[in-house]
Design a protein around this nucleic acid. Structure first.
Lengths: 216, 216
DNA sequence: AAAACTTTGTGAAATCGATCACAGGAAATG
DNA sequence: CATTTCCTGTGATCGATTTCACAAAGTTTT
């Protein structure tokens, strides 16, 4: 039997499981011992059914009578989804947005180490005060390789985005978060996620317009 | 017949159509007159079938023999999805990320007017140099109402996110973009989109881990 | 102007994810 | 200790999206 592979977990389920994991952290701090799928669902704005199905992708863990043991479920998810792994991360493009990400302190708590920043404007590298090492953009591939950086955050202007992705890939990057509002061609071995503020804003605006026209 | 309502367009299709629209802008600049669904698909990393189906939700427009007229298709999408609408937008939470968004100049070109910034720290309001009007957070509802602001961007710490959403809603906001890493309870009449950098990073990391284990 | 080719638009089929509904099992109650 | 109550885990179902496959129609070629 080939089933029950982690590969088989739907992306939306994965995403929810990560939220569950964080919620469990909070429950643990609050000294809560046990939670039910409906507790979790309520806090997350998701149906209890979904939570149960999501959890069940990772194998049995709950107590038929009385919900899930908070610590046990937390460990279960962390182990199955490899959440304790630490990853080195770099930021390319040190405009306002890139600089904000570079200094985003919450990365630390989630196992991400911001170890480098890049910009093609060398003057900018000197004006930014930071304890994080900064490099000119043409060194991306070298530095990524040398430091073993696994994740690259792209915060450059649209025009430079594809080239940035290529350089990161050349350095052996394993994952990319793309803040630029364009679709990148990226090798299938490199995972990536888009975070397109303009795109989301436009989509939101369109949803608002549709919502209007429907209630007319 | 009730069908063919804009409401019926799937969300993923809407999102793709917005990308198509932007791609067409570029084609227009490049003086390209006509494109086929496969041209578009290739540039966007999407199958041509999908593009055709997406476009067809808006009604017939292409030329059976020779693809789509760039200008005509662009206008078609813009009109059907009401993309020429201007929206006023505000940013709540003026940390590094919020300030970056406040000054994000590309908003302008897409019909968004950034007309206000809010922060609960009054000292911060004085230190930020900006031509955009800044207000203390307790005035959110008032200012949103008075200025007719339709979209609110939430860039406050997790703890303050729900309260911010409530204040925006109280002011009659119509859409919210939430950068905080938590799920908000928001009325169904208010559209919203989440942009959770930590969540996306964690998801990316998990995808990378799964990708590893699968190729072992 | 017929033949060969290209490309659209769209029902139909397949896939994917969310929801339902309920059997199975544990604790709580009387 | 029988009964009620409360949960989980999961097949079955349903709905939404994607993909397929092909007829209809325009363009190019010869």
């Amino acid at each position: 039997m080939q089933g029950k592979n982690k590969k088989d977990i739907p992306l939306p389920s994965l995403s929810r499981l990560l939220n569950v994991s964080r919620l469990l952290d909070r429950y643990e701090q609050e000294k809560v011992v046990s939670v039910s799928s409906s507790d979790i669902g309520r806090r997350l704005g998701v149906k209890a059914d979904s939570i149960r199905k999501d959890v069940s992708y990772l194998g049995e863990i709950g107590n038929y009578g009385g919900g899930y043991d908070v610590v046990k479920l937390k460990e279960h998810i962390r182990k199955k989804l490899d959440l304790d792994r630490k990853r080195k991360l770099c930021v390319v493009g040190l405009g306002r947005l890139g600089t904000a990400i570079l200094h985003y302190s919450d990365f630390h708590d989630r196992g991400f180490m911001v170890v480098a920043g890049f910009d093609s404007n060398i003057n900018k590298l000197e004006t930014i005060k930071s304890t994080i090492e900064l490099y000119p953009a043409h060194e991306i591939a070298d530095v990524v390789k040398r430091k073993g950086i696994e994740i690259g955050v792209i915060a450059v202007p649209e025009k430079a985005a594809q080239e940035t992705a290529d350089r990161l890939t050349e350095g052996g990057i394993r994952g990319i978060i793309n803040f630029s509002p364009c679709s990148l061609r990226i090798r299938k071995t490199v995972m990536f996620r888009n975070m397109d503020l303009l795109g989301e804003s436009s989509l939101l605006s369109t949803l608002m317009a549709i919502n209007d026209s429907e209630n007319t």
